[in-house]
Design a protein around this nucleic acid. Sequence first.
DNA 1: TCAAATCCTGACCGCTCTGTCAAGTTTTTT
DNA 2: AAAAAACTTGACAGAGCGGTCAGGATTTGA
Lengths: 168, 168
Amino acid sequence: MKITAQEEYGLRCILQLAHYPPGEPVSVTEIAEKEGLSTDYVTKLLVLLRRAGLVESIRGVNGGYTLTKSPENILMIDVLQALDEDSFFYHETGGSDLCRQFPGKLEECTHVKQCGIRPVWYSLMQYIYSVFSHITLAHLMREEKGKEFLNKAMEPQQELIQISEGSG
Amino acid sequence: MKITAQEEYGLRCILQLAHYPPGEPVSVTEIAEKEGLSTDYVTKLLVLLRRAGLVESIRGVNGGYTLTKSPENILMIDVLQALDEDSFFYHETGGSDLCRQFPGKLEECTHVKQCGIRPVWYSLMQYIYSVFSHITLAHLMREEKGKEFLNKAMEPQQELIQISEGSG
DNA sequence: TCAAATCCTGACCGCTCTGTCAAGTTTTTT
DNA sequence: AAAAAACTTGACAGAGCGGTCAGGATTTGA
């Protein structure tokens, strides 16, 4: 299980933008310096975020990037999805969609009917999706200042699957 | 965020072994057929599991692989770690270890002192680690038979970080 | 109008991951 | 012994990811 570089670095870049007043564009050069990344790479990441409508660009001298919404209204889930369309937690259903990524070569995935693994992935996926749906850029900024919010965000938001823990 | 192919397929293979009585070796050929994978690939996966001490091999005609412990005593966390040493959730500390994977080029990671992102990764990591530490191969087999156990396994096992959810 | 600052885009290179191939070793059976 | 069934190992090819490069377009300011 891996976090991709695009997710990590892209999230850092958009968080940099959140530190500036709305309407004040921040140049790629500045973000790159602050994060220790190349300007070309930061550009690539911001393009992904722009295509997702999370940031917008202003060209020419004194141009740069700004958020399209206030940090309170930008969800971590949307940022991560913009940076990796095939994220683990981004599968709409608990059905065969989850199997499609690792099909094997059989006509039908061996596990379609009696799979013990898929429900685990699915529950985990739901949980992660829920957590990232409750965290905004504003939360991350508050966390930077030591104002922890995570305990609340990490609480499961729903019943997942019926309990039935018999003896060993 | 991604689940690697090795994690997915390796987990499936060891779960196949769990379906057989202890001491009865299962050949690579048989597992490969059941999962729709090539024998060479299944071999590669089982070697990883063997090196981690989770399965053992018996050579020669009528040989194959068996579990080294009963399914009740094989944890999903150990299987996944055997299949991907660099898993997201397998970082011992919440310190700079988590940053080391995505350092950027600065002398010191920009985020060492005031990082709003790392605490999120760390909390999530702890949660996932905890979940996988409570799920055994026996659980997965019960799940196959429709005896759900997941709700209990998905419950957070500990306080994560101090609550402090102020307004907006 | 020219230079500078800035964003835009696609091609590209190297590395890791995925999965295969090939040659070899061990054990059983006949 | 010889053949067959099985595991062992390392090399390797293709695809995808991570990150760079080069050339172009837009805007501002002198």
